[in-house]
Amino acid sequence: MNRRRKQRLMAVTAAFVLLAAAVSVMLVSLNDSIDVFYTPTEIHNGKTATGKKPIVGQRLRIGGLVVPGSVERDEDSLSVSFELVDSGPTVKVEFDGILPDLFREGQGIVATGELRNPTLIAATEVLAKHDEEYMPPELAEQLKGIKHFKPDDTKTSAGSYQ
């Protein structure tokens, strides 16, 4: 191989290595700002297609209906906790801040936050839907025709709300 070809090969190899490094840095940076959407059932059972569950400490978005009777407000601060449900088990959400005006029990919401344990989300943002059209399509499909009630102590089937 002559000298000129070696220089070209080295230049192409260096350009490829720099491009790979730049793409790697971008992907690592973006990974910290990506919020994957989950439903309460997917948090418990994992995503339907992959079975992948969120890990503790992961940022995520969760959507579901606020379980009637589950909203608890702290009288000394803006802290509020409530349970979310879709078609299965519930997940508790804790939020410290001002809730949207449209927030109420039985209402569909989307919260952004961090998974603290497998059934607890520490939310940094809560969005309430403004009408029946404001809902992720996969959540709307799961919630068709389901009525949700706060479970009483006599029910034995955990997470069944029909």
Score class of each variant (00 low, 15 high):
residue 114 E to A: 13
residue 96 D to Q: 14
residue 101 D to M: 12
residue 125 E to Y: 12
residue 77 S to I: 00
residue 151 P to C: 02
residue 24 S to L: 09
residue 35 D to Y: 15
residue 96 D to N: 15
residue 88 G to C: 02
residue 32 D to R: 15
residue 96 D to E: 14
residue 48 T to Y: 02
residue 34 I to F: 14
residue 46 G to R: 00
residue 77 S to N: 03
residue 144 K to T: 04
residue 157 S to N: 11
residue 18 L to S: 09
residue 137 P to N: 01
residue 74 D to F: 11
residue 139 L to G: 00
residue 56 V to W: 08
residue 76 D to I: 03
residue 13 T to M: 06
residue 2 N to G: 12
residue 108 G to C: 09
residue 158 A to S: 08
residue 100 P to W: 05
residue 38 Y to I: 05
residue 95 F to L: 05
residue 124 T to P: 09
residue 87 S to W: 02
residue 126 V to C: 07
residue 109 I to L: 12
residue 69 G to R: 07
residue 87 S to L: 04
residue 51 G to N: 07
residue 2 N to K: 10
residue 141 E to R: 02
residue 10 M to I: 06
residue 93 V to R: 07
residue 105 E to V: 08
residue 22 A to K: 04
residue 140 A to S: 03
residue 11 A to M: 08
residue 78 L to H: 07
residue 158 A to V: 07
residue 143 L to T: 04
residue 158 A to T: 04
residue 43 I to F: 08
residue 31 N to H: 14
residue 55 I to E: 14
residue 103 F to G: 05
residue 102 L to T: 13
residue 81 S to Q: 06
residue 65 L to I: 11
residue 35 D to I: 12
residue 94 E to M: 14
residue 162 Q to A: 01
residue 132 E to G: 15
residue 126 V to L: 07
residue 6 K to P: 02
residue 153 D to V: 13
residue 27 L to C: 05
residue 152 D to M: 05
residue 38 Y to C: 12
residue 97 G to A: 09
residue 51 G to S: 11
residue 117 N to D: 15
residue 93 V to T: 09
residue 16 F to Y: 11
residue 91 V to N: 03
residue 24 S to F: 13
residue 127 L to T: 06
residue 154 T to C: 08
residue 59 R to F: 10
residue 136 P to Q: 05
residue 13 T to C: 01
residue 4 R to Y: 13
residue 96 D to Y: 13
residue 44 H to R: 15
residue 149 F to S: 15
residue 65 L to G: 00
residue 44 H to D: 01
residue 124 T to S: 15
residue 81 S to W: 01
residue 108 G to L: 05
residue 127 L to N: 09
